[in-house]
Design a binder for these strands. Sequence first.
DNA 1: CAGAATCCGACATGATACTG
DNA 2: CAGTATCATGTCGGATTCTG
Lengths: 124, 124
Amino acid sequence: MVEVTALTKEEAEHCPVRSVLTRVTGKWQMLILLALEGDELRFGALKRKIGDVTQRMLTENLRTLERDGHLTRTVHAGPPLAVSYALTPQGLSLVGVLKPLVFWAAEHFDAIDASRVKVDAAKA
Amino acid sequence: MVEVTALTKEEAEHCPVRSVLTRVTGKWQMLILLALEGDELRFGALKRKIGDVTQRMLTENLRTLERDGHLTRTVHAGPPLAVSYALTPQGLSLVGVLKPLVFWAAEHFDAIDASRVKVDAAKA
DNA sequence: CAGAATCCGACATGATACTG
DNA sequence: CAGTATCATGTCGGATTCTG
């Protein structure tokens, strides 16, 4: 079994599992990983594919994901300058456990939304 | 297929999948859900089980998870006042897709940490 | 016991402008 | 094209105090 709770404050801050999870469950990381599943994309293409993400956030998150070994950054000599990003085997494997979560969210959204409406109505 | 990217700014803000995910991938929600797998816990017990979480954050996140129908809040007449929390079938199902992610993180931490060390060394 | 209310600092994110 | 630098802002989260 993997323990992620029942930790002291010190243990929690150094918890390996939490350190991995906090870096893939942010607002953009998951979207980036999913966007790269299947194809290697250049910076601009990736930005367009995600749609709503600023250059700054995309760059920052790509660096973090690269540092953790989830993707690779390849510079193709220019001009024009081109940089492409692709999932590593590890990143692909990560996407494999991320997708079920996304599918789950899609499947259960109706029920969740109904719950929200119901709860909000009850306390209103 | 489920689309979560290639959205306009407007679409993204109302994206159902993202609205579900942002509420379960925070710093505490996942830990709360995992802590409740198996047993129904009272507020204090839950707080102790997670270890490092303030009353405020626990309360706040429990309310959100309750609103989304992932767990139930039951008040047992006091005194002393007792309130217990338990996963709903939906919440249990959610934990089912969350755990693989946690296991994945545990399994791959060594490789990820090695990657971090390597990358940091390269640019230093 | 299980919260609610308040204050506050840290960080994440956005917008914008500039560069090799 | 693919960033970097800077500034502004809003939310997250911790600490503390108070209550039925």
